[in-house]
């Protein structure tokens, strides 16, 4: 018993948790100097390109800084924040971002789950399904945009011709303010579904087989098995998938920039595109920094919700 305890402590010391027991091999004073050497490259880069810019961005957000002028160009106080919170462009961009998130998250999570479920039941040819669903995810957004703009092309595109054949009048997919966002969402579902599919497939394979066998012995049909075993067992995966999905959707920029340029008439401009427009087209760096900070708060809030959910789940399990 006592040897076991000491072995346990030994391992903990290695893992860096409460290094209590003095150790002969490494001396008692710790590894301050070599550790600093190992940490230095990361920490220096981290300070230069994450922490430093974050602080600098915060400072910029209180100034009238311009892309084409040196220096901070005078302090604006809370002016940039006031302008953002009082501007229709900011709120509509935020809404477009949320609307895109609402349109993409449920289908991406649900379809990802369903297709993984089906693929898990199929014994052969799983590589084919993984290829079909995951291959789009590996493509650059620019490639996806080129392909889908061609599919959406009025009159000549594959979608319009197919719909015309069955006697339907297709909408102007990317040209109509009401349809543009759903069209971008469809493209995005096609593009990124593979990611969630793979996560769910991995989650499914971790569920012990005997659980299903026992349920089958009790006379549970496939549907009951899914409801009483699969879905509860995948709870944690679903939280992960949903939160990663929400955060990825909030950060949307590529699809709009490439396929609609935020149009028609700004109907699909996302919050990141507003940052791009204000900072790099209008040169208003200070204002763009303020919008970035407000956007960061939104992402932080979502992350906080995730942490709370994970905490709760861990307590339950």
């Amino acid at each position: 018993m006592s040897t076991q305890t000491s072995a346990q402590t030994d391992t903990d010391a290695h893992r860096g948790i409460a290094p209590t027991a003095p150790r002969a091999s490494a001396g008692t004073l710790g590894h301050g100097r070599p550790a600093a050497g190992f940490l230095a490259p990361f920490v220096v880069l981290y300070l230069l390109f994450i922490i430093g810019p974050a602080v600098y961005g915060l400072i910029l957000s209180f100034t009238n800084a311009s892309l084409v002028k040196p220096g901070l160009n005078g302090f604006a106080g809370l002016g940039n924040y006031g302008e953002a919170l009082g501007s229709a462009a900011f709120w509509s961009s935020l809404w477009h971002t949320l609307w895109f998130t609402i349109l993409t998250t449920p289908p991406l999570v649900i379809l990802g789950f369903l297709l993984a479920l089906l693929a898990n039941r199929v014994a052969r040819g799983r590589w084919f399904f993984r290829l079909a669903f995951f291959a789009p995810y590996i493509l650059p957004s620019a490639v996806v945009a080129l392909i889908w703009m061609w599919l959406y092309t009025p009159a000549l595109g594959l979608l319009d011709t197919a719909l015309a054949k069955v006697g339907m009048t297709p909408p102007s997919w990317l040209g109509d303010a009401a349809w543009a966002m759903p069209s971008l969402a469809i493209t995005t579902v096609w593009w990124t579904l593979g990611f969630n599919f793979v996560l769910y497939l991995a989650g499914l394979q971790e569920i012990p087989r005997d659980l299903y066998e026992a349920a089958a012995m009790d006379g549970a049909g496939p549907w009951q098995q899914i409801r009483s075993i699969t879905i509860p067992m995948l709870g944690r995966t679903t939280t992960l998938v949903a939160v990663l999905q929400v955060i990825a959707s909030l950060k949307v920029f590529d699809q709009m920039y490439l396929m609609t340029a935020g149009g028609p008439n700004f109907a699909t401009r996302s919050i990141l595109q507003l940052v791009y427009d204000e900072g790099f087209t209008n040169f208003r760096v200070g204002y763009a920094a303020a919008v970035s900070m407000l956007f960061f708060l939104v992402v932080l809030a979502v992350s906080a919700v995730w942490f709370t959910l994970v905490r709760r789940q861990e307590k339950v399990v």
Binding site: L67, V68, A261, Y276, D277, F280, T281, F283
Partner: peptide
């Protein structure tokens, strides 16, 4: 459009 002038400026 705007992307052109943005690129030129940057």
């Amino acid at each position: 459009g705007n992307p052109y002038y943005t690129k030129l400026s940057l």
